[in-house]
Design a protein around this nucleic acid. Structure first.
Lengths: 204, 204
DNA sequence: GATGCAATATACTCATGAGTAGATAATATC
DNA sequence: GATATTATCTACTCATGAGTATATTGCATC
């Protein structure tokens, strides 16, 4: 690591700015998740960082923009998970399984949690539109992974729409109950849930 | 049906009062579900019924009490479903299946939807406590139904906690997406979801 | 060393919406 | 018929919290 001079150059200043922006965003999303969006004021967020409200406006803009940024980050993590699963070898079911496992894990994390806990009515009409659009992308990707698994015979021919909603619902829920400080790791929990979901529970 | 006299007796007045109370509650829960609790003012609810805000206070009390009443109704429907499933004959799995099917259907309806869409942070501390208590009862019942199904061998020996969360999550989600005016009935959708959940989707 | 932009603060404005006070009418009870 | 109770309204109060106007400091560039 380079010792940074007390006279930062452009790139360093840029990076510092970005770091501050990120810190504000993280503080905000954590508070939104802990107390709920409406029960969190920007003054609270600012206070938790020892700064003032206008500073948040300086880095991120209105409360609506802050929330949109949070959910966008979460949804981008999901999009990345789609791409990664798509790149994997193996049957359609194996790829679906890989995606679902990443999906739960994102939902257990700060920004993914926020995606689940945010209803579109909390955002302004325009941001809500953007939010719904991104969510639709994920849903479409999930459905096509299901379709492909059925097509190559690695998955039983179930109703694609119902399966997508059922899987998504089950795997969204940890956003509400999973405790990162609990005994089981996120990964182990994720795998157990996905295997139950795909395998069912009728005795063999 | 008896023709009601223009001079109602005590019982009739009591019934009329109850009917008004119910109407207010229904209007409120529908609006909460459509726009979100925070985006709904009691003035809006009152206006939708052609009455004024103090009338709502007369029948139901504060906004917090209105919401608590809504979720309590929803949770009581779930408690009824538990009792009904418990009374059924058949294997543990059959009883579990019966409960899960009722469970989804409640979640597709006005008050059940509200239970799902309400986070405990939306209620006052005391009401939140009551809310969590009732939810815990349902969770406990679900877990014991699972435990019993495993005990009598009709269900594979899965982790009870994980299964409860997975099932509940999957079956809570319709509160967000199910459209009662859509093509498929609530009952058919419910059965499809539950069968997928219990049976899994690996090819046979 | 003047001028401008970046970062931050203090101290406002202003809308919203929960909850209440108090009036009024109608109905019930004595 | 006098008096209490129920149902309802209009018209407030008051707290909260989003968003802004404006001041200050400091670095950056010319």
């Amino acid at each position: 690591m380079m010792t940074s001079s007390p006279f930062p150059d452009g790139a360093q200043r840029q990076a510092a700015r970005q770091a501050k922006r990120d810190a504000v965003l993280l503080a905000a999303v954590r508070m939104f998740n802990a107390r709920g969006f409406h029960a969190t004021s920007l003054d609270d967020v600012a206070a938790s960082l020892g700064i003032s409200k206008p500073t948040i406006y300086h880095y991120l803009g209105t409360k609506d923009q802050v929330l949109l940024e949070c959910v966008t980050l979460g949804l981008n993590q999901l999009l990345d998970a789609v791409a990664e699963a798509r790149g994997k070898p193996g049957t359609g079911l194996a790829r679906l399984r890989a995606f679902l496992i990443s999906y739960v894990q994102v939902n257990m994390d700060d920004f993914g949690r926020c995606v689940i806990r945010t209803g579109d009515e909390m955002l302004s009409p325009e941001s809500g539109k953007r939010f719904r659009h991104l969510k639709r992308e994920i849903d479409t990707a999930l459905r096509s992974l299901i379709r492909e698994a059925i097509a190559d015979g690695s998955m039983a021919p179930v109703d694609e729409r119902i399966a997508a909603f059922t899987f998504a619902g089950a795997l969204n829920w940890p956003a509400r109950w999973f405790d990162p400080d609990g005994p089981k790791t996120a990964e182990a929990t994720a795998e157990q849930m996905v295997d139950l979901l795909l395998g069912g529970c009728t005795p063999r």
